[in-house]
Write a protein that binds this DNA or RNA. Structure first.
Lengths: 215, 215, 215, 215
DNA sequence: TATGAATGAGAGTTCATTCAT
DNA sequence: TATGAATGAACTCTCATTCAT
């Protein structure tokens, strides 16, 4: 949703964001120069300053828009997946896996370069980071309350689950051994095991939802 | 014991390595300037170039020595922990947790800045990275063969376990809620759950070994 | 006329080249810093890097453009000076003297700093150096074949003649005892003596052509 | 003479001078670093400062000792070669050719790097440079007075002769086409032609003096 | 007679950024 | 909607030099 009209009306801006995403992702924020980005976008050096006040602002925009895409879709998915924390977790993990794979570069930037924001901008991004974490934490804690997840360490378990999901953009390759759908399968499996979901109903009944990533 | 004699005989070099570790860890390789490092070490800018041919070489030394410390201790620990893959995994996870906590900054550099090495140096570090990954993979796969770990996805499970262990240096704080010993406990617990260790003997019988980190 | 449009359209670049010429000429390539050059040009340090990829490239440009000016004019002059090797040599020596005096700084750079070019760039400059040497060698050898120059050592004689012509930029001063026209006279005289031009017609009939240097 | 006892008693100093000569000759004074020289000499960086107060002083020593070798031998040769300016010139040119070939590197440094000396030291070297120039100028002017050299431009002719002799170290190679003895022959020939020595006795009667260079 | 350790100054180069057009 | 020209600050790295040993 985000950026649609913008993409149509301001192709330069979109090209720069895409270029910044790719460049920050591969070289890191500090290792990527404005020149690198402009060249990747096929624009001039000064073009970036027409669309963004500064390099920091480009990074902030990138991070926030990625967070917003993530949060928007995640909320929608949770609302569609019923009351049971197990089905919610199932849907959520599957979405995270899809998102981290489809938005690999954006996720890398978000996960590794957020701390390069200056304090003022960091605060803005941090709010979304927290919202994002609370989302999954909420689901798990509800599942624990409901008695569906029996792990004795819910807080740390959440962190562990999030950790292995977030490691996806660091190693995933399109030409790899496993398809996104297979990875969805495995990562939900791992999450349920780690949270010690109750055996009989632990595995979500339905099949994998290999649908396109919601963005 | 690595670096003992060096620390005594070449204090400048050791100070620089410590400063580089701290600075690379907090600012990233590209965000850390030689001046930052020298200042942190209390030496002049040029001192770094007396001991290291280049910034890249300082990074490589840092990464390799951290890998070597890790690998050296990990091998020793595996040899001391019997034949059973379960006790080996228990010892290994506990060691990794201790190591990632005790060598938080070195681990951050190793985990996040290795890819900043130029191709030639990257190859040198990559060899250790592979050795390190094979170590834990070996234990898990043996456990699967022995029938102790029943996960249907051993390869990906290893990655997941490694991922959540490696996330420790990203958030751990000395003034945090949990002690290293408690974290050892939780992370081994998670690992065994995720690998679906057989129930009756799954949890290692003995208590946590809160001993100092072996390095 | 080289550089006219460039001079008009890119005054910064022209100012930098002039400054580089003067600075390399007086301090040598290695003794001249980028800061020296920029200051001489009245521009900032970084301006040089807007117009030239590197200090080496500025040197290369300087050397090649001087060579090209020299070769362009020299060819034109040879074509205007008839078939007789004696009149050709006369015109050529007179031109060289004028050129070395008028382009004193460029010539100093070309003659003394070419060997500071890195191998790759050296090759580019060397091609022009060879062309330049072949030009005068051709005239002399033709004169020897025609029987006009009777030196028993034509090859070395060429080198000697070129040597004393090229020494001009090392000592010539505008406030010196001799005018460029007088120097033309003497150096052609020397060249004809050294090559042992046949007596009766040895001295070129016409008067010295004190015209401006062709460039 | 020079350096004999010194060479025996202070091998480090001699090694450094040789290394400095070679390095300054190939890279130029400003292009040669103290490290380059020390490495070439197989000594440590600081060794140079044990023997020489500074890089400038090493250059001065090199230039002066080369000048002194040259002047000492040249004076001796002039005294042995009779009263006739022609035989004196013959002997002198032959010596210069031999010296420039045998002391190729020292000559290159002397001829091209003297101007890198700071004002104070430049004065010291300049005195020898002038003495050196006066030497050959004296011979030529005497020859002109005696009526043996009939060039109408004695002053400039001297410069021309010196120029082509001094160009020797710039191109001479041991594996070249011509032997030192042959070059002696040609360069004296050129000098006599250029100075317009009287025909009948112009060529020095005796054979070439193939003796080793006097140093 | 030499060297290892260290440094301040300065090298070439790149940086993010500005501004007139 | 963009860009070419330019810059000050900072970068990595090398320099000549010093000094305790």
């Amino acid at each position: 949703m985000a950026g649609t009209s913008e993409t149509r009306t301001r192709p330069g801006r979109a090209a720069l964001l895409t270029a910044a995403r790719r460049t920050f992702s591969s070289k890191g924020y500090d290792g990527a120069s404005i020149r690198d980005i402009a060249q990747e976008a096929g624009l001039s050096l000064s073009a970036l300053y027409y669309y963004f006040p500064s390099k920091q602002d480009a990074l902030l925009e990138l991070i926030c828009s990625t967070f917003d895409d993530f949060l928007g879709s995640a909320h929608a998915i949770l609302q569609e997946s019923g009351e049971d924390a197990r089905s919610q977790l199932d849907a959520l993990i599957r979405f995270i896996v899809r998102f981290r794979i489809a938005n690999r570069e954006g996720s890398r930037v978000l996960l590794r370069e957020t701390e390069r924001l200056d304090p003022e901008r960091l605060e803005i991004a941090r709010a979304r980071q927290i919202a994002s974490n609370e989302l999954i934490k909420g689901v798990v804690l509800r599942g624990v309350e409901q008695g569906h997840f029996r792990t004795p360490y819910p807080e740390e378990a959440v962190r562990a689950v999030v950790s292995f999901c977030n490691s996806l953009p660091l190693w995933y390759r399109e030409d790899g051994r496993l398809s996104p759908a297979q990875l969805e399968e495995r990562y939900t499996h791992f999450a349920f095991r780690l949270l010690e979901a109750e055996p009989e109903t632990s595995c979500r009944p339905g099949a994998a939802s290999p649908g396109a990533v919601r963005t």
